[in-house]
Design a protein around this nucleic acid. Structure first.
Lengths: 243, 243
DNA sequence: CTTGCAGGTTACGTAGCGTCATCTAATATA
DNA sequence: TATATTAGATGACGCTACGTAACCTGCAAG
């Protein structure tokens, strides 16, 4: 059975030696063997555990929480929660990107660049209130709740829709046609959204209408017109034909 | 002219009062007025500056660097660099997601879940070596270089392609047809990649061939077959028709 | 024999705040 | 008018996840 020294593990996993020693110190990852001089030797199992730790860390879990749950979760559970987390981040990022492009557009057009616009955009994109525990599945949560507190949550999907709708509004306002590059962009986002969050067009449309019905303060949008919906549909029509 | 107190700003921008006081303390954002009791009052300009700071912070810039460059950069420059950063993050995230799904697939199939596979995947996705300075444009960099060091960089786009190719290989291996949901996924990613990173199919194909020519150790892939390319093309053919 | 390298320990430093403890001024309520 | 609450202020200490420096050890190479 092969064993690895700190230096080897450090290079392989791209982690500092100091980190490994620290993990040993706080009893997060104690190497399965130490020789007479105190040299650490890591087994293959240790490396798998380290992998787990790295993944859980990327969920922004504090190390002592990781230590608490490490043994209770299977590799698959960890990966699935990691996957959920990543998808969530993706949503946020895409919303952020939309907002940022909107702002840049506004500056470039040198008009309507008011404090109102900025704060409305930023307010929508900023508050991230989901926590790592939300990325675990229900049954796992039940167990986890006993160890650690819980949290509120926020509809990120809605935010994504809002972002798309804002882009469409921009297009209409500045006379970009559905046939333009911007129209293609909109179409792509829409397809992505339907594909990732729902399974078909029915739900998509429902979501659209739900958002439309929300009061303006809540969505951060000026009231949404029929025009917008038509624009959206035409974007997809023009650029893609689903077979 | 309206002025805001710490508490008001705190709520509006979703920042702790402590943070505001800290920024004052380190001379990052000093409110334009203080009354006899030392109460801080922020002007509209102050709020814009705060916005800039928040954006720059989201680039993971340390606060003292932000202080140094804050006055030198226009709002537009900051937003553009922020946008570049976000796009970069998006690439990484997508690669991460692909890798994670691959791993989950492997576990689910309960075969070939060797250390080799895991480490190959993780090694590819892990090392993030771009730094915030890379997200500024050339002329801005020249100026910035005088203040702060510089860094290497890594071909993230290649990594994205690798991720897609890996998914295709998985499809072929487990007999998922281009017509399946997985095929649709692949098609979506491919369209996204062509649309975001290049402008047309020509470059896409070049990139594909470039990667194919790379030795296996570098790409982290088993040699890529004609089969893969055909599969990719069919995915797009089957699911989308560009008009 | 020393030199260098890979390992070790101990201990202090860091960023960006959170979190007391304590104080003041202004306003609301009894 | 007395008091309680609120929103502000200022230290000062605490925290995470390590980086970094100082110094020691064991071993192979020159």
């Amino acid at each position: 059975m092969k064993r690895w020294t700190t230096g080897e593990v450090s290079k392989q996993r791209n982690i500092s030696v100091r980190t490994l020693r620290y993990y040993d110190q706080i009893n997060l990852l104690t190497p399965s063997f130490k020789d007479d001089n105190g040299k650490r030797y890591y087994s293959e199992d240790d490396l798998f555990t380290l992998e787990k730790i790295i993944i859980l860390k990327s969920l922004s879990l504090p190390l002592d929480n990781i230590r608490d749950i490490l043994d209770e979760l299977s590799y698959r559970q960890i990966l699935v929660s990691h996957y959920n987390y990543l998808q969530e981040e993706l949503s946020k990022l895409q919303a952020s990107i939309s907002n940022t492009t909107s702002l840049i557009h506004m500056i470039d057009l040198e008009e309507s660049f008011s404090w109102e616009h900025v704060s409305r955009l930023v307010r929508n994109s900023d508050n991230s209130s989901k926590k790592w525990i939300d990325y675990f599945q229900e049954d796992e949560r039940n167990f986890l709740q006993e160890i650690i507190p819980n949290l509120s949550n926020n509809d990120e999907i809605t935010q994504q829709y809002i972002a798309v709708l804002q882009r469409i509004e921009w297009c209409i306002k500045y006379d970009r046609k559905p046939e333009s590059d911007e129209g293609l962009d909109v179409a792509l986002k829409l397809i992505e959204l339907t594909n990732e969050n729902f399974q078909g067009d029915t739900e998509l449309m429902e979501k659209f209408w739900e958002i439309r019905k929300l009061p303006a303060e809540e969505t951060g949008l000026y009231p949404i017109s029929e025009e917008v919906l038509e624009f959206a549909e035409r974007c997809i029509e023009v650029h893609f034909k689903l077979c």
